[in-house]
Amino acid sequence: MGTNDRKKIRNDIILAVVLLAVAAAAMLFWHFGKVEGDFAVVLIDGVETARYALDTDTEVVIHTDNAGENTLVIAGGKAYVGAANCPDLVCAGHRAISRVGETIVCLPHKLVIKITAASDAGGVDMAA
């Protein structure tokens, strides 16, 4: 066998390994989906009213029924409630969220902020 053939075989092996690695990575991606989300979606009483890209820092006051106010802050790729006028303040105490399926709920204001990705699925189906 000449050095040329040997080189060819080596190239083929490299090609096969690369293909398999790509396939494995693709499979993992499809299986687990994307973990870090792209948007913070705002739902008031179950209805989507707005969505904000996590890659753009912003601060917005969400108005709900009965003069409810929750300040949604997006900073450094994460979303959190910076301030709120609900009685329990559970929403304002919640850690910043950034992964698909994570939610912040303000029960008194019937408000849900949840993280989604541009592509379908990924992350957890339910946080509890």
């Binding site: 850690r95 994570e102 992350g123 957890v124 339910m126 946080a127």
Partner: peptide, 10 residues
Amino acid sequence: WSVGIENPDT
């Protein structure tokens, strides 16, 4: 289904 159990340490 994938279910995430939230960290109770807020």
